[in-house]
Amino acid sequence: MTILHVQNVTGGYTRKPVIQDLSFEMNKGELVGLIGLNGAGKSTTIKHIIGTLLPRAGEIRLNGVTLKENMDQYRTSFTYIPETPVLYEELTLKEHLELTAMAYGLDEKTLAERSEVLLKEFRMEKRLNWFPSHFSKGMRQKVMIMCAFLVNPSLYIIDEPFVGLDPLGIQSLLDQMDAKKRAGAAILMSTHILSTAEKHCDRIILLHEGRVRAQGTMDDLRKAFQMPAATLDDLYIAMTKEQDNEQHA
């Protein structure tokens, strides 16, 4: 069953589009890696999906609706973990969880149950009444992660999740992602850490200069590049070189 459907999307901040004619789908229980160089259009793609940018052409459907058709349903269907943690400096960790739960319409009992599990998993139980100014980069990241997982949406959008997390934090995040996947959620993850992407993602979307260069499982990609036994790093480098050659030819 399709959860996210991105169809021929063109868009960006200014008149010159950053992403062009972008199309891909995400299904239930799938972890998809969005891979690309700096400036390839990963963040712009994400901004279109979360609705802070609107596509100039094409449409994005989440659980069958576009943002315009049903804003409430669209927004309830996903949570987002940005690359740089965005926290309210004036709220404690506990209040961040409470605010998120309120906004997504969770009842207090669910909030208590779910946050207990998450706080334990990410070893933050003792920091409930702390303000973000006392948190390290990794802890701030954990607050974002906990808020996103608290809601239990059908789509998770995670931008560069591993930077700043300690090894235990990375493991907890991977465990959480795995559990949600098995429960039927889809996860879109953008990252530069290719070895982790290769190991955990069911499918990979390779973005290059605003377009989908290739997408599919690792085997699909190896076939497309005619490089059996290649790692994602090899494929990636091959892709960028190919592009250079085309440009110089």
């Binding site: 965005v86 309210y88 605010l99 906004a103 997504y104």
Partner: peptide, 11 residues
């Protein structure tokens, strides 16, 4: 001015 998480909330 800046991006805040509540801009994404379903409210």
């Amino acid at each position: 001015g800046e991006f805040r998480m509540d801009m994404l909330y379903p409210i």
